[in-house]
Design a protein around this nucleic acid. Structure first.
Lengths: 186, 186
DNA sequence: GTCTATAAGAGGATAGAC
DNA sequence: GTCTATCCTCTTATAGAC
């Protein structure tokens, strides 16, 4: 198999995630893939296009979650379901999400329109989470609940090797509590 | 008054925070200050040194909080006090904290030792927060509680002009809840 | 303290042979 | 699809005059 494009994606995701986007040069990526810089340009028209290709699945998952949420009435069970949808979107795309979390400035600069869409989706999500006619504190707590889900990314920094299954229940309980819900459902 | 160094600090903090560290050149900073690039080097020996100077107050505040926590017995009131100490450290250093949050990769690369210290302090903090003999879930919830405090930084993205006083109580309640404490104290 | 001038190199991207 | 060679721009940083 010679899935060059796939190899490039894998190497780029690894390097962007560890060193950061701006600090990773196409030369480094090409070297690890076993190509020259010029050959990279056969597969991707620019460094930005490569980045975009990497984070597209995360964007899509995030949008799907936000759009699904909008269609649901704001009940306690649905709130939990939406939180879980967000968490799964992150857990299913951990490397890409980590890229966003640890390298926001560079990602914004490289692909501003995508960033704008993410902001909009986040706004939709926590507005829905805060419920109808929210107080200022409700809104802040909704933001806090989404911050908790970000623990899916940062936790592995402190607990190396922690799995998605380790994180799912504690983070969901924690996010629900941060939002102000009573104890977990069975 | 001709506090050139102070002006440089202010301009650099502003640019690093908005564009990101790697994407801000010394030329840009010099231009806005009204100096040449070369003159910057009279005041700071390197770009890294400038960055370090900007985030030092945050590091110091964070270390003070972590060290204070270690000296306290793990009671519910003390847990709230430590969460509040962390939150105030962030609120008192919002621009610098924002730099860390949105530009982690660049900051790590520029000043790795400082990053290592921050990781260690964070470890101390959430280990203390998780309490003695914590379960795996307790540790994850302690991490989640600290994530909530990070809302102090991200909230202004969605609620422009939100003040420290707007954030303090909801974020503390939310962090305490994320950690698993019962309702707030009066 | 601030300047001009320059070093020394890396970056992304392109042209065109094979 | 991959290569070699090159372009052009920008960067951090230094030397030395004023």
């Amino acid at each position: 198999m010679s899935d060059t494009r796939g190899t490039i994606r894998a190497v780029a995701l690894e390097l962007f995630s560890t060193r950061g986007y701006e600090l990773t040069s196409l030369r480094e990526i090409a070297e690890r893939v076993g190509l020259t810089k010029a050959s990279l340009y056969y597969h991707y028209p620019s460094k930005q296009a490569l980045l975009l290709d990497l984070i597209q699945p995360l964007i899509d998952a995030w949008r799907a979650t936000a759009e699904h949420a909008e269609s649901l009435p704001h009940t306690e069970d649905n709130v939990r379901a939406v939180l879980r949808g967000c968490l799964d979107a992150l857990l299913d795309n951990r490397p890409a999400a980590g890229l966003f979390v640890r390298d926001t400035a560079a990602v914004i600069a490289a692909i501003a329109p995508v960033w704008e869409e993410l902001l909009t989706l986040n706004r939709q999500l926590f507005t829905w989470l805060a419920g109808p006619r929210p107080s200022a504190a409700d809104t802040i707590r909704a933001i806090a609940a989404m911050e908790v889900l970000g623990g899916a990314i940062s936790a592995s920094l402190y607990l190396p090797g922690v799995t998605a299954d380790d994180l799912r229940v504690p983070l969901l309980d924690s996010a629900a509590a941060a939002l102000g819900l009573r104890r977990p459902s069975p």
